[in-house]
């Protein structure tokens, strides 16, 4: 067993886990089930979370590797009940049909917009190339990310408010 200390969505958490535990498994064991397991080999992006601000596939990161890091998941996107501009835009554009790929896509999009809220559609496509969606199709998703970015840019990059 190894001990891991991870700050998840601003909250310090600690656990004793078998070394082969992935970050995805640990997060879900902590009850943060918004992050999904889709393929368990880094292809679908349903398990995307931010590790120290960088998007990673939770299924390809060992919990031990995340020790001492800060992790953001979809559950941390809205603050005090106020939706993140991405969540608002995804709702308005009907970008989440079955919704299973959504949490991962939102986190990939967050990494992009945090660095570059004015990202172009082609930059958005590159940023989301590791996230597969099978129901909605990508048009509504890309439109929503672009709109959320514009909103964030108008608020000086601030996401909530």
């Amino acid at each position: 067993m190894i001990e891991v200390n991870i700050t998840v969505n601003g909250e310090a958490r600690t656990a004793e886990v078998p070394p082969e535990t992935t970050l995805l498994t640990l997060l879900r064991d902590w009850g943060l089930t918004g992050t999904k397991l889709g393929c368990d080999e880094g292809d679908c992006g349903a398990c995307t979370v931010l590790l120290d601000g960088m998007s990673v596939n939770g299924c390809l990161v060992l919990a031990g590797r995340a020790n001492g890091c800060s992790v953001s998941t979809v559950e941390g996107l809205s603050v005090d009940g106020r939706l993140h501009p991405l969540q608002e835009a995804f709702e308005q554009h009907a970008s989440l049909q079955c919704g299973f790929c959504g949490p991962g896509i939102l986190m990939s999009a967050k990494e992009l917009l945090d660095a570059n809220p004015s990202a172009s559609k082609s930059e958005i496509r590159i940023a989301l190339s590791g996230n597969l969606c099978r129901c909605t199709g990508y048009v509504k998703i890309i439109d929503a990310v672009a709109e959320a970015g514009a909103k964030m840019a108008a608020h000086g990059g601030q996401s909530n408010g």
Binding site: R28, L32, T33, G34, T35, K36, L37, T73, V74, E75, L77, S78, L83, L86, Q87, F90, E91, Q92, A94, L96, Q97, C98, G99, F100, G102, P103, L106
Partner: peptide
Amino acid sequence: VPRPDSRPHGTGETLYIDD
């Protein structure tokens, strides 16, 4: 019309079976 399940999907609250 907003999809009725859109918001919980986007906040990660929706419980699928594995959840």
